[in-house]
Amino acid sequence: MTKWSIVKRINVYGASSFISLKHLVLAPADLSSNCSFSGLINTGEEDEEELLKKMVKHSESGSNIISKIDYMNLVDKYTRYGNLSAAYDLLQSLQEKNICLPISVSENLLVAAGEQNDWKLSCRIFREILVSAGKPLSSDCYLNLARAFINTDDCTHLSSLLKEISESSLSCRLIVLNRVIFAFAESRQIDKVLVILEQMKEWQCKPDVITYNSVLDILGRAGLVNEMLELFSSMKEDCDVSLNIITYNTVINGMKKACRFDMCLVLYNEMVQCGIEPDLLSYTAVIDSLGRSGNIKEALRLFVEMKKRQIQPSVYVYRALIDCLKKSGDFHRALQLSDELKNTSSLDLAGPQDFKRHLRSHRR
């Protein structure tokens, strides 16, 4: 019996069988040694069978020095040839021997699992990366997890993973759950976003205002205004969640995009009554919606109020008001605003960078 127990596996991408290293890792005596096994490995065209035979032969010769690069090459070969289970098993075996490969190896495996829509393996790999990364995961990790679920309605493994994260001791667990929600929204899996949100209400790590605001934005972008209003109402009933300027701006913009202009003013007035002061995004959305609905008088009133509060109007607000005044036949007032716009320095106008700054602060 050799130091390794050898298991035969069938390569799903070829006709021949090859030798797998599942649970068969030879622990290096000193990974920091200058000695390396790399010279025995052809990292180019050599197939797995020949590669692993060399590794077995080398181990039987009594040497126990194998570099991390060799293991990385082997995991990479498994991943590239589509044998993801063998790659994952090898990584697990290495962890049991306290041999840690760079996190990029697991990230590449997660990419491949997502491409194959292997949601079970994706959940396992994501869990491993989250535990071992020691730093915030990249957005690509979350997106690759979400992509694995595109062609399935089975959320059992996903729910199990997220519940485990919710009950963990991770200080960033709520951030992780919120980023998972955002990733599923980015991949247009809104039904799963709503499932996650509902389940979170029963978990130890419950949704916060950032969670709700993210889902409101997702629903608004998708044009699901009824669902957005329903969620907005449920937020008001949740004693643990305090609505903020981001909440109202998100819903107002969602209503504007859906041409529900009447609701924009209602929400604006409600926000003010709650003691929340409107900002650049609030005024821009409401003034635009009022102008489009033909309520020019109220739009101009808010325009004046905006300037009194020293919130610089944007060129978009000017153009929206000028357009609406022309349509209503008030050419004199439209000309006045047009002259005001021409005489206003571009430095005194809110521009795209101001909207971006507000949006960035809203997402934090």
Rank of each mutant, 00 (worst) to 15 (best):
T2L: 06
W4L: 11
S5C: 09
V7M: 03
Y13C: 12
A15K: 11
S17Y: 04
H23A: 09
L31Q: 05
F37A: 13
G39R: 10
N42S: 10
E48T: 07
K53E: 15
E60L: 13
I65C: 14
K68D: 10
Y71A: 00
V75A: 15
S122E: 05
C123G: 03
V131H: 14
G134F: 05
P136A: 02
S139Y: 05
D140P: 00
D140H: 01
L143E: 06
I150P: 00
T152R: 07
T156C: 09
S159D: 12
K163N: 15
R173Y: 04
R173W: 04
N178F: 00
V180T: 14
I181F: 01
Q189D: 12
I190W: 00
I190S: 01
K192M: 15
Y212F: 14
S214A: 14
S214D: 01
V215Q: 04
L219V: 02
A222G: 04
L224K: 15
L229C: 13
E230N: 15
F232D: 01
F232Q: 02
V241E: 00
L243K: 07
L243N: 00
N244H: 10
I246H: 07
I252N: 05
M255H: 11
A258H: 02
A258M: 05
C259Q: 11
R260G: 03
F261T: 08
V266M: 14
L267S: 01
Y268M: 09
M271T: 04
C274L: 12
I276F: 13
I276M: 14
E277S: 15
L280D: 06
S282Y: 00
V286T: 12
A299T: 07
L300D: 01
R301S: 11
V304P: 00
V304W: 02
E305Q: 13
R309A: 10
Y316W: 06
Y318L: 09
K326I: 05
S328W: 00
L341E: 06
N343H: 08
T344K: 14
T344G: 01
S346V: 07
G351R: 15
R357G: 02
R363K: 09
